Amino acid sequence: MRLSGEKLKSVRMQKNWSQEVLATASGLSLRTIQRIEKTGNASNESYLSLLAALDVPLSSITAQSTEVEANWSGEMIMKALAAVLLVKLIVVGMMVMNARFIDFINIPNVLFVVLFTLAMTLLSYDLDRLWAAMKGIRYIFTQDIIGGQAARQLAQTYQSQIQFCYGAGAIVFLIGCIAITQVASNQIDGFDKGAIAGFSVNLLPLLYATMISEGLLRPLKIKLLAADEADLQEQS
């Protein structure tokens, strides 16, 4: 969490305190007070000392973050990678147990779901929100996230993308159902093996939409909302 130098200066002036008085009350040096008011950078110890000296809530001197702040460590990244690999192994294992793995691969359908989701994000918001959502995928590799308005906004974007993903899957599924029905209606014997195979391929977009939504976007949304909730609790 980052301190706001402007807010600190405003609170100090409301009390009619000089920087020297605040330095004495907080036990910090005058140079430290000057640096904090100028840059907003303060250690946790300085933070607590200022809060105690000024006797104000945390939110009164906390900067309103315009970006999601996160810290990455080797341990966090390895844990996230292990979790991702475990999920992939489970999913691939289920595929292999039930059919050939190649039967689950359809590049055009993957591209449609992804591109439809990105296009709808751009249409619903703007290029900045789309770019933020794409960059935000990296947060899947950390647990140390500081929330705020930016986190809430990004979580909202991911929630919309979840809906867009399922929407893309539903569109392709319905188009495929109509096509299969039209083909079958022109055949005397009704559905044949080709129609059945076509119907199985028709389910793949829904599978891709579910994997992207539940395996990536929803965990990101939950992380960001949890970080935002923790941030609000700290400020209260």
Results as ranks from 00 to 15, higher is better:
V84S: 14
L85W: 00
L86D: 10
L86W: 09
V87F: 07
K88M: 15
K88F: 15
K88I: 15
K88V: 15
L89H: 06
L89E: 10
L89W: 06
V91Y: 07
V91C: 08
V92E: 13
G93D: 13
G93N: 11
M94W: 03
M94C: 00
V96D: 11
V96R: 13
M97S: 14
M97Q: 13
N98E: 02
N98D: 02
A99N: 12
R100L: 10
R100T: 03
R100P: 09
F101Y: 00
I102Y: 08
I102S: 15
I102P: 00
I105Y: 09
N106C: 07
N106T: 07
N106Q: 09
I107L: 10
I107E: 00
I107W: 11
N109Y: 14
N109K: 11
L111G: 07
L111D: 12
L111I: 13
L111W: 08
L111R: 13
L111K: 14
L111A: 12
V113M: 00
V114M: 04
V114N: 01
L115I: 14
L115Y: 08
F116H: 09
F116C: 04
L118M: 11
L118Q: 01
L118C: 08
L118H: 01
M120V: 09
M120D: 05
M120L: 14
M120Y: 08
T121Y: 05
T121F: 01
L122E: 11
L122A: 12
L122Y: 15
S124G: 04
S124Y: 11
D126S: 07
L127F: 13
R129Y: 01
R129F: 00
L130F: 02
L130R: 06
W131L: 05
W131T: 04
A132C: 00
A132M: 01
A133V: 01
A133F: 04
A133D: 01
A133N: 00
A133L: 02
A133G: 12
M134H: 07
M134F: 07
K135V: 03
I137Q: 06
I137G: 03
R138G: 08
R138M: 12
I140L: 14
Q143I: 07
Q143Y: 03
Q143H: 03
D144F: 09
D144Q: 13
D144V: 10
D144G: 10
D144C: 06
I145C: 02
I145G: 04
I146T: 04
I146K: 08
I146F: 10
G147W: 06
G148S: 08
G148C: 06
A150L: 07
A151S: 05
A151L: 04
A151Y: 05
R152F: 08
R152V: 00
R152Q: 13
R152S: 12
Q153D: 15
Q153R: 14
Q153L: 12
A155T: 09
Q156C: 09
T157V: 15
T157C: 13
T157R: 11
Y158D: 05
Y158R: 08
Y158N: 08
Y158P: 01
Q159V: 01
Q159P: 02
Q159N: 06
S160H: 06
S160N: 03
Q161L: 10
Q161T: 11
Q161N: 13
I162S: 06
I162L: 12
Q163A: 12
Q163V: 13
C165R: 00
G167H: 07
A168R: 05
A168V: 05
G169N: 02
A170S: 06
A170D: 04
I171R: 02
I171D: 10
V172C: 14
F173E: 00
F173A: 07
F173L: 09
